[in-house]
Each structure stands twice: as structure tokens, then as C-alpha cells.
């Protein structure tokens, strides 16, 4: 019991140190390109951890998580677009200009995706199981087609950012600084989430995963709890979206396509559902394998698929379970 606990701590410390030192290691190896790949991993990790909150802890399989990711990204891009053009985002009843400041755009992205999650959640959480999957998927696809048709923001072609957002005392266009901003945000979210899942709120969420009816019979209005959890996850995914817009300096409807939701879901499954840290591993494994395998073949999914099946079949808590020891309850 205690050795397993230590092993978990060891893994987490090792992972944290690796992530902190990574930019230095990358420049030592003379591969600065790695830093931007690593940033991408951190950003997807944030989205995957947020999905794990509702999937692993809440037991709600959402196939629409990329909707929040995409909205966050578009929020940043649209604000930057208006700022660049010098036009107003909203001109009535009050004038709201665009902005290229991270301190405005990122909270706006979080707020907007959180609100979207409130709407989607309010409707989808009235159902469960297959219906829930289909409704989240349907909403995400609706949003996808909405942005495809939104010609004023590039439609199908998407929007290119003139530059990354500005942040006081930081230069986000510097890949290393941008990496550390992503890393801090991921660490903060992991800290908050790791408190959340053992808090009274988290216990209610885990109870709902096991038996919703029983929770109600104990006196919990479960719908409200699940809705808030869904909103928290959506908001965090929106933040990840704001970061990805900055990282690739380009947004397109593809960011919220259902296949993107699938990718985030696969990261969670691969890393280990209900483990919180596992999805970070999942994101890293997925993106690294994509990077490596796609050098050799464009059909890299052909090789990735069987691997995923093996992990999901044989490792109950995914890669994280393999590394940090199995048998322990994480949820």
C-alpha cells in the first residue's frame, strides 16, 4: 500500500521535473522544435484532463468536448481579428472592441466556453448513456457547421492570427516562454482538479457516476452538481482552446470537429480514465506517436489503433496505471 503510494508520488515528481526541464533539454539536444511540440502536448493535456473530470469521475461520456476547445480558440482569434482590423466586436447596445491581450482574451474564452457548456449541459444532462453521447456529439457538430458557414470569420478556411496574444512581462511569441505559461496553467488546473475530486463536490460527482438514483435518494439534486462539473470541464477545455489558437496562430472549424473530440477522448482512454494525471500521459503518448509514426506512413492510425486497443483492454487505468501501479483506486 505505502510502496504503491510512493511509486505514484515518484512518477508524478519525475513527470513534473521532466516537464520543467524540457525546454533546456531540448535546446541542449539542439532540437528547439521540440518545445513547440511539447507546448502542444501540454495544451491537449489540459483539454484531456478536463474531459477526464466528466468522463472518469462523472461517468459521462461526452463526444463533444472539442466544441469548448474550438469556442475558446475562436474567441481568441475573433478578438484578435477585430483588434487588428480596428473594428468593434459588438457595436450595440454598447461598443466592445477586439483585443490582443491574453488577460482579456483568455478569460473571455473561459467564460464563453463555460457558458456554452452550461447550455449544452443543461440539455444533454437530462439524458444518460448513449443519448448523452449523441446529444453532445450533435451539439458539437452543429457548432462546427455554424463556424463553417460563418464567412465573416473565414468560414471553412478559418482565421489566421496576426500574432500571439500579449501578456505583461512575457513574450508569448517566444516558444520557451509560451511553453512555461502553458505549463503553469496545466499545473494549476491539475492542482485544482486534484483537490476537487476528493472534495465534497467531487465525492458527489463520483457518487453520481456510480448510481445517480441513489444519490437523489440520499438527497442530492444531482443534475445541478453534474451541470456545474460539466461547466468546469468545458471552461478548462476553452482555456486549452485559447492556448492552441496562440500556439498555432490559426483557428479553423476543424478544431471542433467531432474527430477532435474523439482524439481528446482517446488521450483520456490511453492515459487512464479517472486518474487525472493519466490524460497528460495520454496526450503525450498520442501526439508523440503521431509525430513519429507519421514520418513513416500517412496511415499511422493503422498502427496506433491496435496499440490503443491493447492498452484499453489490458491496462485498467491506462498508461498511468502501468507506471504508477495498478490495483489502487484512483477515483
Amino acid at each position: 500500500m505505502s510502496s504503491r503510494f510512493d511509486r505514484k508520488k515518484l512518477c508524478l515528481s519525475f513527470g513534473a521535473i521532466l516537464l520543467i526541464l524540457l525546454p533546456m533539454l531540448a535546446s541542449l539536444c539542439g532540437e528547439p522544435y521540440l518545445i513547440s511540440l511539447a507546448s502542444r502536448i501540454l495544451i491537449y493535456a489540459l483539454a484531456a484532463v478536463s474531459l477526464d473530470l466528466i468522463l472518469g469521475y462523472g461517468g459521462l461520456v461526452s463526444l463533444g468536448h472539442a466544441a469548448f476547445f474550438g469556442i475558446g480558440a475562436y474567441m481568441v482569434a475573433i478578438l484578435a481579428h477585430h483588434d487588428f482590423e480596428g473594428t468593434a466586436l459588438i457595436s450595440w447596445p454598447l461598443t466592445v472592441p477586439g483585443s490582443d491581450s491574453a488577460l482579456i482574451a483568455w478569460p473571455a474564452a473561459v467564460l464563453c466556453s463555460g457558458l456554452l457548456a452550461a447550455i449544452i449541459g443543461a440539455l444533454s444532462l437530462r439524458t444518460t448513456g448513449m443519448h448523452f453521447i449523441m446529444i453532445t456529439l450533435a451539439f458539437a457538430q452543429m457548432l462546427f457547421y455554424f463556424f463553417v458557414g460563418l464567412e465573416s470569420y473565414g468560414g471553412d478556411d478559418g482565421l489566421t492570427l496576426f500574432s500571439r496574444n500579449t501578456l505583461p512581462h512575457f513574450d508569448l511569441s517566444d516558444d520557451t516562454q509560451f511553453y512555461y505559461v502553458c505549463l503553469v496553467l496545466l499545473f494549476v488546473f491539475l492542482l485544482l482538479a486534484s483537490r476537487l475530486v476528493v472534495s465534497r463536490f467531487g465525492l458527489v460527482i463520483r457518487g453520481c457516476r456510480e448510481n445517480d438514483k441513489r444519490m437523489q435518494s440520499l438527497g442530492f439534486p444531482t443534475y445541478r452538481y453534474k451541470l456545474l462539473c460539466f461547466m468546469i470541464a468545458g471552461a478548462a477545455s476553452g482555456l486549452a482552446g485559447a492556448l492552441i489558437a496562440n500556439q498555432i496562430e490559426y483557428v479553423s472549424p476543424g478544431l471542433m470537429h467531432w474527430t477532435r473530440s474523439g482524439v481528446i477522448l482517446v488521450m483520456v482512454l490511453l492515459g487512464g480514465t479517472g486518474t487525472l494525471y493519466g490524460p497528460v500521459l495520454g496526450a503525450a503518448a498520442f501526439l508523440l506517436l503521431e509525430e513519429i509514426l507519421s514520418i513513416y506512413t500517412e496511415h499511422w492510425m493503422l498502427y496506433f489503433g491496435p496499440l490503443l486497443i491493447l492498452v484499453v483492454l489490458f491496462a485498467r487505468h491506462g498508461l498511468y496505471g502501468i507506471l504508477a501501479g495498478k490495483g489502487k483506486r484512483y477515483g
Binding site: S199, F201, G202, L203, V204, G207, F220, Y225
Partner: peptide, 27 residues
Amino acid sequence: FPQLSVEENLLLAIQAQRGHSFRFWRR
């Protein structure tokens, strides 16, 4: 609740009686 520990099961019943559970920080 099968995946929760015995004490977590009981805690749920107890906290249900003690106001809302929108409490996010303390274990």
C-alpha cells in the same frame, strides 16, 4: 456505491444532511 470506499459511502449520506455540497477545496 461499489467503487467508493466504505467511509466515502457513509460520508455521502452524512454530507447530504449538512447543507449543499458545492464545496470544492477541502478533502
